[in-house]
Amino acid sequence: MWESFGFEFINFYFIPGLVLGCIYALGAIGITLTFGILRFANFSHGEIMMTSSYLTWEFIMIFTSLGILAHPLIGAIPASICAILLALFVDRFFYKPFRNAPTIMIVIASFGMMLIIRSMVQVIWGPNQLTFVKGIAKPNAYIRDLTASFDFMLLIPNKHFSILIGTVLIMLLFNYLLSSTKIGKGMRAVSDNPDLAKVSGIDVENIIKATWIVGGFCAAAAGVFLAMDTQFIESTMGFRMLLPMFAAAILGGIGRPFGAVAGGLIIGLAEELSAYPWLGDGPVISPGYKSGVAFSIMVLMLIIKPSGLFKGKVF
């Protein structure tokens, strides 16, 4: 059974799907938080992700030039701080002026920011792909040998291992923030009912800042994880992630951060598993259409249940 079916399925479809799902989940957290708290679909979120991976690349270069061999996750620390500052800067100068305007103004502004941020990255780093991590990722030998001794051989490259563990850690941190800190509870409150939040004396502007910090951090993590996974970075990677992230947020229910996580995992798995030869020899869905899977799930959800799996908001 393991030889004929499980080995291939788990190692070449399920685990990559899970990894992709983690990346979508982290990205979707930011989307669903801004959608829930600021009530708008933030089109520039993918660009924050993309910028973080470029910044990480830049920091690795700087470290290397200083003679320090840095792991991407080390470069990601200063990069995520920059990403958070970028998110706060964009909010202050491009979104805040529209706080009391019809929400669609802010959607248009975020649509514009999408292009502005991407153009800036293209001006600074050029339009071509950059290699993020060199070489072929080999499966972790220890896990391979250990699992092989149980006739259950798992081939997990270290990069996937870091991404999975990293995502779990961020989720735990995020859960602690939302359920046990005042600012996290405030975020849930504003997302629940912004008008009531105002007349309850909650400082909504501070909550909004916290939202950008959390969303920016998760986006930075997602961007770096994606770069670690694909081992290259390019200026359109954020835009490519945008649709699956929106799909994940809608699938999980808008304003439901853990719904977004579930949605992200489902979408990531669905995309990878769509290439599995379920029927006959070829993949069920031609690989060229893989990125259409997220969209189809989203459209299906909008038709049958716009509030998502976990009773989110519908505007």
Binding site: K185, G186, R188, A189, D192, N193, D195, L196, A197, S200
Partner: peptide, 21 residues
Amino acid sequence: PQTDNVFVSLTVQENLEMGAW
């Protein structure tokens, strides 16, 4: 307020905490 005057997804105690921001 007349309607929607509690944060429905927060617990009772969290609601009180929000009142005491």
